[in-house]
Amino acid sequence: MSYLPYVVAGWLFLIGLYGVVTSRNFIHLTVCLTVMQSSTYVLLLAIGYKHRSSAPIFYGIPAGSRVVDPVVQALTLTDIVVSVAVVALILSLALDIHEQAKTLDPEQAVEVSG
C-alpha cells in the first residue's frame, strides 16, 4: 500500500487552503474551495482501495472475489452532490456581489466590519 494518495490528499487540502487565503477574486476563491474538497475525495477513495481487486459491482463476478470498499465510494458520491449545491450557491452570491459592488475582489466588497 503506497502512501502517495495520502500525500496527494494532504497536498490538495493545503494548496486549496493557501489559494482561499490569498485569493483576490471570488470566482478563483470558489475554485480553490473545490480543490480543497477534492482532497477529501482522494482521501476517501485511497482508504477504500485494495490492491488487485475489482470495482464493487457484484454482477458477473464469482462470489467471494476481492472488491474495493464500496462504502467510501458512496460517501464520495454523496459529498460530490452536496458540494455541487454549495459551490452553485457561493457562485450565485459572487454574481450578486459583482452586480452590487462592481468588483469580485473580497477586500473591496467589504460593507460591514469591526
Binding site: 482532497s39 454549495v86 457561493i90 456581489i97 466588497a109
Partner: peptide, 26 residues
C-alpha cells in the same frame, strides 16, 4: 451588499469547516 458579504463569508468559512470535518471522518 451587506447581507451578500455576510452570506459569502459564512458560506466560505463554513464550507472549509465541513471539509475539515469530512477529512476527520475519513
Amino acid at each position: 451588499l451587506g447581507p451578500l458579504q455576510g452570506a459569502i463569508n459564512f458560506a466560505i468559512t463554513n464550507s472549509i469547516a465541513a471539509f475539515s470535518i469530512l477529512f476527520g471522518i475519513g
